[in-house]
């Protein structure tokens, strides 16, 4: 279980996160929803060791996660960043090889590559193409596959459905549930609050750096404030 306690992050004078606490139990799907600039990406970047924290603690099973980002990946906590961030100049296959950077066993890397090619056959077809030549949706598949290459225990997904066609959004959410059912713990950040809440075991609502609501996915979805602000439903 990952536990965030009293976390604050400042960017210069801007308070991006103000004393938030949340926990991500093993094997669950936890969602964070909130408007633009609420601090969602900042939260997961803190968990991934990508931003300096101002105060608070982040631990996994009692061990501090305030360590360099590469060591967090080695522990099995892997982020799929906002905006895909695939490497555009190297090939699809090379992107995937880097995804498995922490794995030393070559056979294992091969096996994982076959697994993601089964999941997304289009990537196999495109494996020798530079990542930058893929379509937006294909880049999202590559970004997710790249993360899966390292056998993560915990997958941290930052807006995986952003910019995808409705059909594919459904597929991505289905895939997230599938990944969860085979044992991956999921931390999901989404603007698509409705979907994110519907698959979440537990959810948090962030507003300008503070948690304003939390609970089981369904409960949060039924909260009148959340309904109005994030789901566009008036009571």
């Amino acid at each position: 279980m990952i536990e965030v306690k009293g976390l604050s992050v400042h960017y210069g004078g801007i308070v991006a996160l103000d004393n938030i606490s949340l926990s991500i139990p093993d094997g669950k799907i936890v969602s964070i929803v909130g408007a633009n600039g609420a601090g969602k990406s900042t939260t997961i970047n803190a968990i991934s060791g990508m931003v300096k924290i101002h105060s608070g603690t982040i631990t996994e099973n009692g061990e501090s996660l305030l360590i360099p980002p590469q060591d967090i990946v080695k522990r099995g906590i892997v982020q799929v960043p906002e905006g895909r961030k695939i490497f555009p100049t190297i090939t699809v296959q090379e992107n995937l090889i880097l995804g498995a950077y922490v794995i030393k066993d070559r056979e294992k890397i091969k096996k994982n590559m076959e697994k993601v090619f089964d999941l997304f056959p289009i990537l196999k077809e495109r494996k020798n193409q530079p990542g930058g030549t893929l379509s937006g949706g294909e880049q999202q598949m590559l970004s997710l596959s790249r993360a899966l290459m390292s056998d993560p225990r915990v997958l941290v997904l930052d807006e995986p459905s952003l910019g995808l066609a409705p059909m594919f959004v459904l597929e991505i959410f289905k895939m997230i549930e599938d990944l969860n059912s085979i044992g991956h713990t999921i931390l999901l950040v989404e603007q698509n609050a409705q979907k994110a809440l519907s698959i979440a075991d537990y959810a948090y609502v962030l507003e300008t750096g503070r948690i304003v609501s939390e609970g089981r996915g369904k409960e949060v979805a039924d909260d009148p404030i959340v309904k109005k602000a994030y789901l566009g439903i008036e009571e």
Partner: peptide
């Protein structure tokens, strides 16, 4: 490959454990 990847993005490789 990591050196070539870092040529287009020096931040993201950390997320791969690099």
């Amino acid at each position: 490959i990591a050196i070539r990847a870092a040529s287009s993005d020096i931040r993201t490789p950390s997320l791969m454990g690099i």
